[in-house]
Design a protein around this nucleic acid. Structure first.
Lengths: 240, 240
DNA sequence: AAGTGGTCTAGACCACGGA
DNA sequence: CCGTGGTCTAGACCACTTA
């Protein structure tokens, strides 16, 4: 039996949450698998069920687990279709989130420039990867994107053949749990290589997305600048 | 003493929440005022403190109240600067949400067209108001917007001199509590009257916002189409 | 010091899902 | 039927704010 919280002022339920998050990130339970029930967890930790419940409730609201009455509590599979697109606000005509399919892709190692280190909260010169992608949807060009990620979080990335993956799936493979993203949206005129890649005339208005994805520890994981040409698709922001 | 929940299967804490929301919408407590403490509410309703607490926790997450340890629980003032801009994703250079200042404004009564009735979940022909506004920020044109609201929710609106108000403040005056909004974002080229109003050349890429604001009962309150020219400002979407 | 919300406990019973 | 999470209770003590 593990007793938590004896020497910390951090609320017990947050300590429980921290510990469970760590266990999930470490892969103690596979995605989709059930975790021990409330009673069992409370016994294991030597605390009350209500405290475990509060930790689990918060984790559910952060999309780390899914709880269903009568069935149990399950680790969410971040790589599933449903969750892999959670940081894309682009939706098809049916309102389904899409990311498109990667048509071409290239990776290069580099040192962080001033602006890159600022957006990713690194020191200038820290090693990073640049990932360039062209995405299509229904065989039509959808977007051109340039992503930057810190090498420290994705060691050995260029060896992987997985740079076509969405950041959600990629982060999952490297044991990074994602929490949220911020995306600046703008309108600019297509020009040069971007117009060519998207097969539109120069001057066509494009949606530009400048987004940063943050891990559960609050640190930035990916900075991405994308230029999109949306035909049957649209960008949908939700506010509450 | 009021006893709730005897003849309903709806969870007690949701009934409590419903009742408190109704009281707030009815103006039983003024914005910014403290509501009775947990113990008092639980005694008044003849239920446990934990149940009251669960209702209040949900209401806080929906921005209806604000709770502060040692002070009390307060009704949020939706008309305050902080909350009046909550459905605008446009931010200034400092990252502060802005809506701009209304430069010109006009209102007209009309019957809902097909598309309007669809977006606002009305029947075609139901009475609506059209509100046209031009907004500036720092003396530069910011956006041209056309809003549509159902007359049923805002009886006698044209008599008011308040059509320059944001939908959040307006809804508050008519006893409507807002919950969330959805906004389609696109990029189009400026033309005609819109280019003139925004003082930009024809063909300039503009951000178009097509948004619907929903009340706490889930029904649409406002449909708005805006064309924005953002110079020092930007549009920021947050995802989680 | 008094009053508030925040945390934590240790139960009880209910609603749901699957065997 | 059993096991799960969901609701609800009735307390205790703590941390914070204000007077």
């Amino acid at each position: 039996m593990t007793v938590v919280g004896r020497f910390s002022t951090r609320p017990l339920y947050l300590q429980v949450k921290d510990m469970l998050i760590q266990r999930i990130a470490a892969g103690a339970w596979k995605p989709g698998a059930a975790i021990p029930n409330e009673i069992e967890l409370s016994r294991e930790l030597g605390i009350s069920v209500g405290t475990v419940r509060k930790a689990l409730d918060e984790m559910e609201s952060e999309r780390l687990i899914s709880r269903r009455q009568g069935r149990g509590t399950f680790v969410i599979d971040q790589t599933s279709n449903e969750h892999a697109v959670r940081f894309s606000n682009i939706r098809d005509a049916n309102g389904i989130r899409i990311t498109g399919e990667v048509e071409s892709c290239s990776v290069a190692a580099a040192a962080a420039s001033d602006v890159e280190s600022r957006r990713l909260q690194l020191r200038t010169g820290e090693p990073i990867f640049h990932i360039h992608r062209v995405r299509t949807h229904n065989d039509a060009p959808l977007m051109v994107e340039d992503a930057t990620v810190p090498q420290s979080r994705f060691p050995g990335l260029p060896q992987e053949e997985d740079v076509t993956l969405s950041i959600v799936v990629l982060a999952h493979r490297y044991g990074v749990l994602l929490a949220r993203a911020e995306e600046k949206v703008g309108a600019t005129a297509a020009k040069g290589g971007i117009a060519k890649a998207l097969k539109v005339a120069e001057g066509t208005p494009l949606l530009t997305l400048d987004s940063v994805v943050y891990a559960i520890d609050g640190r930035p994981i990916e900075w991405r600048v994308a230029h999109c040409h949306l035909s049957d698709d649209h960008y949908l922001a939700e506010m509450s």
